[in-house]
Structures are given as C-alpha cells and as structure tokens.
Amino acid sequence: MPQAPFPTKAASQPHVGLFVTCLADVYRPGVGFASLKLLKQAGCRVSVPDAQTCCGQPAWNSGDRPTTQAIAKATIAAFETFDYVVLPSGSCGGMLRDYPAVLDGDAHWQGRATALAEKTWELTSFLADVMRFEGISARLDGAVAYHDSCTGLRRLKIKAQPRALLAQVKGLTVRDLPNPEECCGFGGTFCVKYGDISNQMVSDKVADILATGADTLLAGDVGCLLNMAGKLKKIGSPVKVRHVAEVLADMADQPAIGEAEGPR
C-alpha cells in the first residue's frame, strides 16, 4: 500500500493526517470538511490517507483482540509518518491511544503504536492545546448546549478546549448541561445490545438537554450525536444537533443531523 509522503518537519506548519472516523465519513462528511478547514486555518498541512477505515473500537469493545490488532496495525502504517494524527472524535482518539495496550506483547508493534498514540489528538484539543489556535472566524446566533462525550472528557481531559474555541464564535452562548458527566447511553454496540437501558439513559440526557432551553446541541463525537439526535427527533423536538467542528468552521448552514435538506 502506498505510504503518505514523509513529512517536511516545519514546526510552524505541521503535517497532519486527518482520520475522519468511519461514522463521520458515512454519516456526516461535513464534519470531515469542517475539520479540514479548521486544521488549515490553524496553519497545518493536512493529508487524508486513503488507507483509513475504522479505528477498531467495535472489535476492541467486543473483546476481539485479533481483529483489533489487525486494524490497529493497518492504521499505524497509514498514519505513522505524519507529525500528528487528528480525529474529530474523542472516542476514536481514545482508541488510537489504546493501541499500545492492544498490541501488548509485540515489542516491535507496541513501539510503533506508542509513537502513534503520542501524536494522536482529538480535533478541539489539538486546535486549542497543540496549535494554540485562536483564530476562529464563525458566527452562529443562538444558544447551544454542549455535551461532553465520555472518552474525550475522562480519558483525554477534553472539556475547556471546545468551550474556549466556541467562545470565539460570534453570536453564540454556550450552556452546560445538568449532570454534565453523565453518559448519553450510546456506547457503540451497547445501544443496540442493551437497547432498553440505553433508551433510559438517552431519555434522561434528552430531558437535560431540553432543560437548558438551548436551540442547538453540540458535541465532539458523531456516535453520541446520532444517538441524541435520534431520540430528540423521535420525540419531535426542534433542537438542532451538530458536531462542534461544523460550528467552529462556520459551516452550520448545512441541515443538522437528522434533518431534511431543502428550505428550512
């Protein structure tokens, strides 16, 4: 498989490999384009390797280590030549950070996995913490509720970063959810394996979202967003659901998740 060209190491213009993540690729290509735009605005050179598929989470969380290892190795090979790997998802970012554990016992691959894990970043934390990017140029009039997805929040310590970036969006107020640390009930295959429990969790979450009175819900993970949008639409709520990158990139004019195209 052809490799990405060896990066020209310019500290000012790091070469970023964008891992779009499978859910964004299929469900929300707009998130991929928003990520591209933001990374470029922040001064990065961005490549999108074709060899990317999925980060391996469905296998890892199902206890299928051999499959996870196969996918991890392919992902490492596809991305290890970049200065950074950036994903518009805390949960997939967490997965890449888990690769050393996935490849435990294989010294060669574990070394490569560790090197990759160390340069893997979720999008908003990469923009805020690594690039110290403060040049958001976007406008959205209204109030948004921000949901902190679990892996991002607890594993990658992402909480202040999206808020700091959103604070630069003109016209926007960000509201915190009640019970901000509570999982939305997505959990990958959990939401279908244990649909009833997941439903209770997402129902509680939706009640919290509605309690904020915000007109838009934002988060940094397409999986959680599909889950919450799926419930909000099911109960007929007009709350719009978007990935945070869409707003930051000033691309919130496309239909929100679960909304039809056409005049709105």
């Binding site: 964004a24 469900y27 991929g32 099911k234 496309q254 239909p255 679960g258």
Partner: peptide, 15 residues
C-alpha cells in the same frame, strides 16, 4: 435502535 430512536440518515456521498 429504531424502537427507541429514529435513525438520522447520512448527508449523501461519504467524506
């Protein structure tokens, strides 16, 4: 999934 939620549909072409 759909017993409790609707399934949002993709935007069209993949990224």
């Amino acid at each position: 999934w759909t017993r409790h939620r609707v399934m949002p549909v993709p935007q069209g072409q993949t990224f």
